[in-house]
Amino acid sequence: MSAVLEVTGLRKVYEGGGRRVEAVGGLDFTVPAGQLACLVGPSGCGKTTLLKCVAGLMRPTSGSVRLAGEPVTEPPPDMAVVFQEYGRSLFAWLSVADNVALPLKEKGVPRARRAELVRRALADVGLSDAAGAHPWQLSGGMQQRVAIARAIAYEPRVLLMDEPFAAVDAQTRAELEDLIRGLWQRLGVTVLFVTHDIDEAVYLGQRVLVLSASPTRVQDDLAVDLPDRRDQLTTRGDVRFTELRARVYARVQAAKRGERPAPDPSAPPAPAPR
C-alpha cells in the first residue's frame, strides 16, 4: 500500500518574548492509504501542534508534510479535521444541517448532491432527527457527532481527529469510538487519530505511534494485531489487548521521564540532554 500521508523531519519551534520553545523536534512517519493510525503521547507533548502542521493550519519551522505526494502548505481540499472543542468548532448560529452543508456549499457541490450528502452523513452518525436543531440544543456527544458528520460529508481522503472525545463522558465516548471504527471500515478513509488515552488508542487503531515528551519525536511504532471486529466488551477483555496496552503504557511513562528514542539515522541529531 502506498503512503497517503508522509511526514518528514517535521520541526516546530515557537519563538517570542525572548523564549524559544521547541514543540516538535524532527518527526518522521508515514500513513498508508486506508489505515487508522493513533498518535498517543503524554499531555503537553505537542500533539496539537503536530496535528495543526499536518492539517496545514500551521507552518512547520522545517521539514515537510505530503498528502498523496503533494506538499501541504495550506489546508488541502481532501482533508477534514475534527477538533476536541466540539462546542467551539460548530457554528452556533447555523442549524445542524447547515453546519454540515456549509463546507460543501463552499466547495461548489450542487444543491441536490449536497442535500443527499448531508442526509446520509447525519443518518450515519444517527442524527437524522436533529437536522433542524441548533448545535447548542444538543448534548456534548451529539455535538461531536455533528462535527463528525460534517467531516465525512466532505468526503475527505484523510480524516484528522484531535482528541475528539476528550471532553465527553465515558459512556458517550465508548459509543463514539465504535462509531468511528464503523465509519472507517465502511468508508475506507485514512484516519489519523490523536489522543492521550492509551486504551482508546489501542482499541481504535490498526497501529499506535507513541510520541515522546516535547520536543516530540516518535518513541515507538507498533502494529495492533487485534481482530478487525472489535467491541467494547470482548476486545477490552482480550489478553492481547492488555499486553498491547501495557506496552504502550510503559512507553508513555518512559517518554514522560524524558527517555529519548534511539536516534534515527534519517533524523537530525538529537539535542544534548538537559
Binding site: 495543526k52 492539517a55 495550506e74 477534514a80 477538533f83 468548532s89 463552499e106 460534517r150
Partner: peptide, 10 residues
C-alpha cells in the same frame, strides 16, 4: 477553533 475549522474546510 472556529477560525481553524473554516480554514481546514477552505
Amino acid at each position: 477553533v472556529l477560525a481553524d475549522t473554516c480554514r481546514s474546510y477552505r
